[in-house]
Design a protein around this nucleic acid. Structure first.
Lengths: 316, 316
DNA sequence: GTGAAAGCGCTAACAT
DNA sequence: ATGTTAGCGCTTTCAC
C-alpha cells in the first residue's frame, strides 16, 4: 500500500496540514520542517492519491478524449501527440474509441465528476456533433472539438488546408512551373487548389480523380507521363510515394522535369528518393492549444484556425 | 453539478444507505422504495462519482495502458481493440505513450492509488521490461505484458507466429506447391517458416531479404518473376500488396501460377485483387484475455500463448 | 507558522 | 428492511 499523508504526518510528528503544505511548496512552513517532510516523502516514495484529490478539487486532472477507429497516419499522429503532451503536463487522459453510430451519451455519462474537458478527435457527423454539444451542457463539461465540419459549443480548433496548399502552389510558380496536375479526390484539397490558383494566373491546372493510397499513386504513373505537365500535387503523401516509386522507370525525372508535392507529412516522405515535398498538419500546435485551454479554464469558448504548412524538400 | 447520493436521499426522504442499496440492486430493499429511488435517479441523471468510489474500494476501475509511438496497423489494431473492449466493459483506460528511453517510473508513480493493472503494449527492451517488473512490485500493481520478448512478473500474453505460418505452408503444400520463396527479413517469420518446413518435405524454400513496406514488395516484382517458384510468402501484407500491384504487368498469374500469402491481416488485403491470403494476429483473443484477467483478480500470474491464424482468400 | 476539524461522494460494518 | 456512522486520502477554512 502506498504511503498516505496521514502516515507521513505520524512519522514526522507534524500535523497533516503542515505536511501537506510542505509537499505543495507552500510558504508558511519552517524550512527545517519542510526539508524533513520532503526527505521523508522521498524515502517512502510518497505519491498523492489523485482520486482523493479529485474528490475535493474543482480543477480535475482527467481529460476525456473521444477518438475513432481511424488508423490513418495523420490522425494517429494527432492522437499520440495530444496524448503525449497532456500526460507530460501531468494530466490523465481517458481515451474512448467511438465507433460510428456508437453511443455518445454513455461516454459522457461515464465521465461525470471525473472530467472537466472532453476533446473530440473523432470526426463526428452533423447530428452527432450537435448531440455532443447538448451532452456537454447536460453534464457540465467543456468541449474541445478538433477539425470538425461544423462548430460546436465550446472550443473549436479547425484546420485550414488552404494555407499549406497555397504555399505549395506559390512555390511551384516561383520555380517556373506552369502546368499543374492535381491527383486525388479529397474535397478540401481541390478547394484549396482552386482558391490558390485565383492568385496565380501563371499556373493552370488539370484534374485527375483517384484514390489516395500508395497503389493508387503507382497506378497513376502512366497517365501522368502521358500528360503535358511540369508539376503534380497529390492529395496524400502515400499516393505521391506510390508515384515516385514508378516515376524512374517511366523516365520521369523528379524534380528536374517534374515537381512532385504530397500532403500529410508522413515520416516515409522524408526518406523517399527524392525526399518528398509536402504539406504538414499543425499537429504540435493543436496539442499545445489543447493544453493551454485545459490549463486556463477562464477562457471563453472560441474558434481557432490552424494553418497547414508547406515543407519544401527535394521532390519539387 | 451532478446529483449526489446524498441529494437523492434527501429528495426521496430515505436514508443514503437505502438509496445506495437500491441503486446497486441489492436485495433487502422494499421494491416500492427501490422503484422510487430508481425513478428519481433517472430523472436527475444520477451517475455515481467513480473518484469517490475508487477511494473506498480495493477493486479499481482504472487500467493503465503503456503504449508506444508505433503507428503500424497490427499494433494500432491491438491498442484500439483493447481500449474499446475495456471501456465497453466499464473500465477506464489511462493511456500513456511511452517513447523509447522514456521514464517508466514516472508513469507508474502517476498511477499510484488509481490503477491495479498495467497493460504493457509497448515493445520494451530487456532492461526496461525488467524495470517494469520491479516497478510493478514497488507500486503494487499487476503487470499484463503483451507480446514481449522476455517474460516479466505478472501475466504474459505471448503471440505465437509459428502456428499461422505453419497453417499457411500446409495450405500451400495441399495446393501442390513445392517451390516457396520467402520475402522479408523479420526474424520470427523466418523462424516460423523453418520450423514448418521440417514437417513438409515436399516444400523447398528460397529466401529473399527485403524491407517490409508496400514499395519494397513492388520493387521485388522482377526478382520474383526471375525465380522459379510457385508460391511466395511475404513478411507483411503491405509488401504482398505492393507485389500484387505489379504482378499483373509482369505477367505473373496469381493464384493460378503463383500463390501469394502475406502476414498481418490488414483491411486492405481483403479488398485487393485477388483478395490476399494472410496470417492474422489474435487481436480479439488478447483483448478478451486482458478483460478476464482484470475481472478476476484471484488468478495467478502466468503465461498464455496465443496462436496466429491463416486466413485463406483468393491469392493462394 | 502550525494544527484541529470539516467535508468531497461513496461504501460497508454495525446497529436497530 | 432500513438507518447511523465511520472512514477512504486529500484540501481547506478557521482558529491559535
Amino acid at each position: 500500500m502506498p504511503v498516505t499523508l496521514k502516515q507521513l504526518a505520524e512519522l514526522s510528528g507534524l500535523s497533516i496540514r503542515t505536511v501537506s503544505r510542505a509537499l505543495r511548496h507552500d510558504a508558511n512552513v519552517a524550512s527545517a520542517k519542510r526539508e524533513q517532510v520532503l526527505a521523508l516523502a522521498r524515502k517512502h516514495h510518497y505519491v498523492p492519491n489523485i482520486a482523493a484529490r479529485n474528490l475535493k478539487q474543482s480543477e480535475r486532472p482527467f481529460i476525456g478524449i473521444i477518438g475513432s477507429g481511424i488508423r490513418e497516419e495523420p490522425y494517429i499522429r494527432k492522437l499520440y501527440d495530444l496524448e503525449y503532451q497532456l500526460s507530460e503536463a501531468g494530466y490523465y487522459t481517458l481515451l474512448r474509441i467511438h465507433r460510428n453510430g456508437g453511443d455518445l451519451r454513455s461516454i459522457f455519462q461515464s465521465w461525470v465528476g471525473l472530467v472537466n474537458f472532453v476533446v473530440v478527435l473523432s470526426p463526428l457527423g452533423e447530428e452527432q456533433l450537435r448531440q455532443a454539444g447538448t451532452l456537454s451542457e447536460e453534464f457540465q463539461v467543456r468541449l474541445i472539438c478538433i477539425d470538425q465540419q461544423q462548430p460546436a459549443p465550446g472550443f473549436n480548433l479547425v484546420i485550414d488546408r488552404d494555407t499549406g496548399i497555397a504555399q505549395a502552389l506559390r512555390h511551384l510558380a516561383s520555380r517556373g512551373r506552369s502546368r499543374l496536375l492535381h491527383c486525388g479526390l479529397i474535397a478540401n484539397r481541390r478547394q484549396g487548389i482552386d482558391r490558390a490558383l485565383r492568385e496565380l494566373p501563371q499556373l493552370c491546372c488539370e484534374y485527375l480523380p483517384s484514390g489516395y493510397e500508395f497503389a493508387d499513386g503507382a497506378v497513376l504513373g502512366e497517365a501522368i507521363a502521358a500528360r503535358d505537365c511540369d508539376a503534380v500535387f497529390f492529395d496524400t503523401d502515400r499516393m505521391a510515394l506510390g508515384f515516385l516509386s514508378v516515376a524512374g522507370e517511366l523516365g520521369l525525372r523528379v524534380p528536374e522535369a517534374l515537381s512532385v508535392i504530397g500532403f500529410d507529412d508522413e515520416p516515409a516522405g522524408a526518406m523517399a528518393m527524392p525526399h518528398l515535398s509536402t504539406v504538414a498538419h499543425p499537429v504540435a500546435a493543436i496539442s499545445r492549444t489543447v493544453l493551454e485551454i485545459v490549463r486556463n479554464v477562464a477562457e471563453q469558448p472560441e474558434m481557432r484556425v490552424f494553418t497547414t504548412e508547406f515543407i519544401g524538400r527535394k521532390s519539387s
